[in-house]
């Protein structure tokens, strides 16, 4: 099955090779801000996966069936950001009303994601890469999964940084950024994974 193989290749590429946080620098704010505790990091990442997939579910058809056929491709940025913002609000309301348990665990993270560049990045990326709908959905899921993995790895490491005693000037953000750099080196190990598995 060539198509399923292709979809999995897209998924793995998005997760490991083009990791949004550690290789493409998208979504750095939540990566640095909400990675202090493992449970928060997990909650945030699951919310990101969720929003990325819903955003793709909506923006891909908008671009393909509304904007492009009418020559309105230039409205992409403005339409996408508004749609994502409205969507996040809507999802929060729906969750609160119908699935309060899920809202209790994800709800607080949802508003934080509205202006997250990783979410808008996925939507634009899907269009730029000329993905089909299925490919776009796999790309969105893979990107979110990559975010989750990066967050979990980094949350674990940050708990150790808290116990360290770096020079005064490095305390706080600088040492965190340098650690992020080291974590991002580890992702180089994945560079050839898709090529070797599906070559």
């Amino acid at each position: 099955m060539i198509t399923i193989k292709g979809l999995i290749a897209i998924l793995l590429t998005a997760t490991f090779i083009n990791n949004y946080v550690l290789q493409q620098f998208l979504g750095i704010c939540p990566f640095l801000g909400v990675s202090k505790k493992l449970d928060q990091a997990t909650g945030m990442s699951i919310a990101v996966i969720f929003v990325m997939m819903i955003a793709t579910l909506v923006t891909w058809p908008i671009q393909t069936f509304l904007l492009t056929p009418n020559g309105l491709g230039y409205m992409q940025t403005i339409v996408f950001i508004l749609v994502i913002a409205a969507l996040v609000q809507l999802v929060e309301m729906v969750l609160k009303r119908y699935i309060p348990a899920l809202h209790a665990s994800l709800g607080v993270y949802l508003p934080l994601i509205t202006t997250n560049c990783a979410v808008l990045g996925v939507c634009i990326n899907n269009i730029d890469s000329e993905f089909t709908f299925a490919q776009a959905m796999f790309n969105a899921f893979g990107s979110g999964l990559g975010f989750l993995i990066a967050m979990l790895m980094f949350a674990g490491i940050r708990q150790h940084i808290e116990d360290c005693d770096p020079p005064e000037s490095f305390k706080g953000l600088p040492i965190t950024l340098i650690s992020a750099g080291i974590v991002s080196i580890s992702f180089f190990g994945f560079a050839g994974i898709v090529d070797n598995l599906f070559g």
Binding site: Q23, S169, L173, P174, L177, I178, G181, S184, F188
Partner: peptide
């Protein structure tokens, strides 16, 4: 590459903190 970006950014912030010796409205955490 990506790791260099993180490291250079971290170093620059550390230098700014050192130079201003905490006088700047520093953000301790993110």
């Amino acid at each position: 590459m990506a790791p260099g970006g993180f490291a250079v950014y971290g170093l620059l912030i550390a230098i700014v903190i050192k130079l201003t010796s905490g006088k700047a409205p520093r953000r301790k955490s993110f």
